[in-house]
Design a protein around this nucleic acid. Structure first.
Lengths: 280, 280
DNA sequence: TAATAAAATCTAATAAAATTACATAAATTA
DNA sequence: TAATTTATGTAATTTTATTAGATTTTATTA
């Protein structure tokens, strides 16, 4: 179910008209849902059969079937309404609400991701001499999770969750090093100061935070994380989940970036753990 | 979840034919997507205009529009099939695949949750004298995240990510303490041994792991976490996300369990952080 | 560069599907 | 039980999508 991604691929592989259609649909997919094949053909400037061939070419039965697939895809992208938790809710309700809220956060984060920014971050991580991760509170465990993911790449990486250690390490970074500061609020003074220290030391600073906050001022690159919470007393903070998945994306892209020879190293790291486990 | 919920409401409010239609669609919504209005009318045993009126009665423009809404709704419910990541995938594809895989894991975890088990876990946590969290590797950051969530409840809680410290602490637990062991594989020897130590010491042991693994043997209560991975080299480990959300559920239920007086304490903890942040 | 072949696209005709108008039947109420 | 409202079905109409065949565009080769 990667219809929208397939649409992006059309850009390269298919004919001129197909590209025009794909571009139009990518630009405003929602409006296509309420169009007939004639309306869409007119809007794009091609004939109806061309639109129809476009749909069948993408593996659909026809235009209506294509619209259904598009609707399903968009539905997945549209965050459901996140509802506050009521102390009187049943356990089942609470579970559903928390999972729904988490999914909604993921959807928002996914929509927010800019491919070019990710690619630049991967470039930076791939060429960094060392990587330092800083986070406090909930962001501390995100930093540690990221450390665990990045360890396997061979590049020296450390997550600091102690303000003193963060400052000591950061102050002695060089232009070849990369500092990743994680803060959901982007306002934690200690973390902002660490980012500033890192920037002064010449390190490339990547911020994983809410855009437009004090932290972003000291960052060379900001990976925005959807933020729309802290409204309700009981609803948990879900943005850290989005941050974790963001690191999943970075680590995965980095592994691919390193090339096929590197996959042997990944396997070695995996194998190194075998003796620590009871075999199934 | 508007449309499917609306369908359930139809049961009560609308006419006989409308109920028949709603029942049919509720029973197998996916198959309706590939039906024409005539096919559906035939399957249900009503006329085409009746189906049409049913759709408009639910606030849709007509049958095709209804199908689009249904497709969107189903798309939100059922995460796409998790696809392995191909090194040749575009960045957009990789991002979508990772987010989809994460959502799929969440859906699986959500379906797997047993309300009674959660409630029992909350009971245990609520009455524990102290809580010890143990995890290694990826589970270490889950333990730390859980610690961060549980800190605000006042009960002494600590996450250990060092095997020696884990054993030392665990061995000296009492029957009033609670030990939470986190391991996605359920086969990490060190963690299994820690669980055993804790059980011998008399502590209540909660395992957050895959059912049917060595770890579960030493647990008083197992919170299962959907596991279906490690197949692909590049696809990231998503079960830790499910574990985090599981802790969100536990912490939220615990906050409610503690009663309304406790919400003041929650606010105090929140307020205690204010001076560490730049105000927006 | 011109001739030829392949493809992409369009116009027009056909088929399919959905909607509307109107008639009939069922249910509800006085 | 008759009157009235509401629900449902039949058939006609309209909208929408698909197919067939002609035409143009693009690519290929002599």
């Amino acid at each position: 179910m990667t219809l929208l991604a397939d649409l992006a691929d059309v850009e390269a592989r298919r004919s001129k008209s197909a590209r025009k259609i794909a571009a139009y649909i990518t630009a405003e997919p929602e409006s296509v849902l309420s169009m007939s094949i004639a309306t869409l053909a007119g809007a794009v400037g091609v004939s109806e059969p061309t639109v129809n061939r476009f749909c069948t070419g993408l593996g659909r039965k026809g235009f209506p079937d294509f619209k259904l697939a598009l609707a399903a895809e968009l539905g997945r992208r549209q965050p459901g309404i996140t509802q506050d938790i009521d102390p009187d809710d049943s356990s089942r309700h609470i579970i559903d609400k928390i999972f729904d809220a988490t999914r909604a956060t993921l959807v928002r984060a996914q929509n927010q991701i800019d491919v070019a920014t990710i690619d630049r971050a991967v470039q930076i991580l791939g060429s960094a001499r060392s990587i330092v991760l800083c986070g406090l509170g909930a962001s501390a465990s995100v930093a540690l999770d990221a450390q665990h993911k990045l360890l396997r790449f061979g590049t020296p990486v450390i997550a600091h969750t102690d303000v003193i250690n963060q400052r000591m390490t950061t102050a002695s970074l060089t232009g070849e090093d990369c500092l990743i500061c994680i803060s959901y609020t982007g306002r934690t003074m200690a973390t902002v100061e660490v980012a500033e220290l890192g920037a002064c030391a010449g390190a490339t600073v990547i911020g994983i935070t809410t855009p437009g906050t004090p932290l972003t001022g000291h960052c060379d690159l900001v990976l925005p994380v959807a933020s729309e919470e802290d409204t309700d007393l009981y609803t948990p903070m879900t943005s850290r989940i989005a941050q974790l998945v963001l690191f999943d994306v970075l680590a995965t892209k980095l592994a691919i970036h390193k090339g096929p020879a590197f996959s042997d190293q990944l396997r070695q790291v995996k194998d190194s753990l075998k003796t620590t486990r009871y075999q199934g």
